[in-house]
Design a protein around this nucleic acid. Sequence first.
DNA 1: CATTCAGCTTGTATAATACAAGTATATAGT
DNA 2: ACTATATACTTGTATTATACAAGCTGAATG
Lengths: 143, 143
Amino acid sequence: MERSPLEAIELEMTILSRRLTSISTYKKYGILDHSAYLLLHQIASHGSAGVKALADEFHLDISTISRQASALEQKGYVYRVPDPLDGRAYTLQITELGAETLKSDTDVRRDKFAQLLEDFSEEERGQLGQLLRKLNDAVSRAM
Amino acid sequence: MERSPLEAIELEMTILSRRLTSISTYKKYGILDHSAYLLLHQIASHGSAGVKALADEFHLDISTISRQASALEQKGYVYRVPDPLDGRAYTLQITELGAETLKSDTDVRRDKFAQLLEDFSEEERGQLGQLLRKLNDAVSRAM
DNA sequence: CATTCAGCTTGTATAATACAAGTATATAGT
DNA sequence: ACTATATACTTGTATTATACAAGCTGAATG
């Protein structure tokens, strides 16, 4: 068989996709928008990086990251460190303000998710976390 | 306790959200775009409905659905049936072509997901399907 | 030294959405 | 019955996130 779970996943993912698009674009949780949050998170947790590396990591176009990075810089959340070996390149480092903002936004988001998942048992949350991670890995490889 | 799964879910959902945005907007699986697919699916599986009802169902603005419905009609996937009791209203009914297109697109999507989930055990797929459904319900209620 | 390549930015286009204003019909209050 | 308000839908406009293409500047290579 194998059809039934697949059907469910296909439909639910499609629905989820649309809802997330709508929410992440038009509702703000905290201060940072979606892309700013992920960029900051990446820089904070994996160290500073250049535009190219970030674009690869996120599977987004370089130009997209370039603009998002500019926006972050303009707001004072990151600053550019020129690469001493390559005059074209630089890396983005998070500022104090960036780190604080990321922290507070992360808290806000976790609260939202805690609320959202209040009907989920601890076991379900564990499963969901794991499965989402696995799913993201698969999506990532498929791109 | 309870922090770790929540952290994972929060992060993975954020990542997933971005990827889905990118994929659903810029990659087409089959013929129908994202919104057309969901609208047709809804009409096909829950019977014909008006713009208002669909907007409520999907938690989208009426204007958004109105345009998407027009697009579907223009492509011959649905037709309008005037409400005999209310001169302002109509419902959307799926056409033969719409039903066929939906069917073939659904097949394409399921194949894609089957491929994507090839490393998932049958049990994991079952869990994922259920958890996604529950998650969508929660998201839906939260809006 | 000339040519090609790499990292980044900027210009432009597209798609999905929201909000606001407008139209036509229906409903309710007096 | 008449007017005011509410409802169903459409259309105009703006925003946001993305992609693709062209351009700039510096690096690497023949």
